[in-house]
């Protein structure tokens, strides 16, 4: 695999750090006037999502990671793995572990197109679309006439996720949801 030297470090570069695939977030050039130059680098560990900070001497290099971010369609779950398919017409599939899909799973249903991060062709994280539409399977009956501003109540979605919705929502309504905040947006 290729290696990147400190002067090639850029935000977005995918590298291997302590065996884990990471994405560079920031690279700061640090140098006392007469002293050694360093690169102070912030990484996002693509498996854990944690941010790591490391300092390198200028000229040091680290191994590149074979990481790709692709749009993939969610096909189905076999109980253990979650299967996704490329949308480039190749019909190639990849199986994501429960850990990789954990953050997206509350929001996605079959045929939703997600952003999948593949490391050595293996999915390591799945991001749900920013907005999804999901049906309400359970909630208290809607209050007639209360279509304007007012309180909220819990509603269970078809994925099993519970969110807060306005009082006028009924079972069977299809809702638009912002997956980044988990907030109700509108009826779809």
């Amino acid at each position: 695999m290729a290696r990147y030297a400190t002067n090639e470090f850029r935000a977005g570069l995918k590298v291997l750090l302590e065996g884990d695939p990471c994405s560079i977030l920031e690279n700061e050039f640090v140098k006392p006037g007469k002293g050694q130059a360093f690169s102070r680098v912030k990484f996002r560990n693509l498996k854990s999502g944690r941010v790591w900070e490391r300092t390198f001497k200028s000229g040091e290099s680290i191994e590149a990671a074979d990481v790709m971010e692709l749009s993939m369609e969610y096909l189905y779950s076999d109980g253990e793995f979650h299967h996704f398919m490329k949308t480039d017409g190749s019909y190639e599939q990849a199986a994501a572990s429960a850990a990789a899909v954990a953050e997206a799973l509350p929001w996605i249903k079959e045929q939703d197109v997600c952003q999948v991060t593949l490391w050595n062709d293996d999915p390591i994280s799945v991001t749900a679309p920013n907005f999804v539409t999901l049906a309400v399977t359970e909630t208290d009956p809607g209050l007639k006439g209360d279509t304007a501003a007012g309180g909220t109540k819990p509603a269970t979605l078809s994925t099993g996720t519970v969110i807060r919705v306005p009082l006028f929502i009924n079972i069977g309504d299809v809702l638009k949801i912002d997956t980044r905040s988990g907030d109700y947006v509108s009826r779809a």
């Binding site: 640090v30 140098k31 006392p32 002293g35 050694q36 360093f38 300092t55 001497k57």
Partner: peptide, 13 residues
């Protein structure tokens, strides 16, 4: 060692 001193200096500053 010069590199260690330089890094410690940069961080102390």
């Amino acid at each position: 060692e010069p590199t260690e001193l330089d890094l410690a200096y940069a961080e102390a500053v």
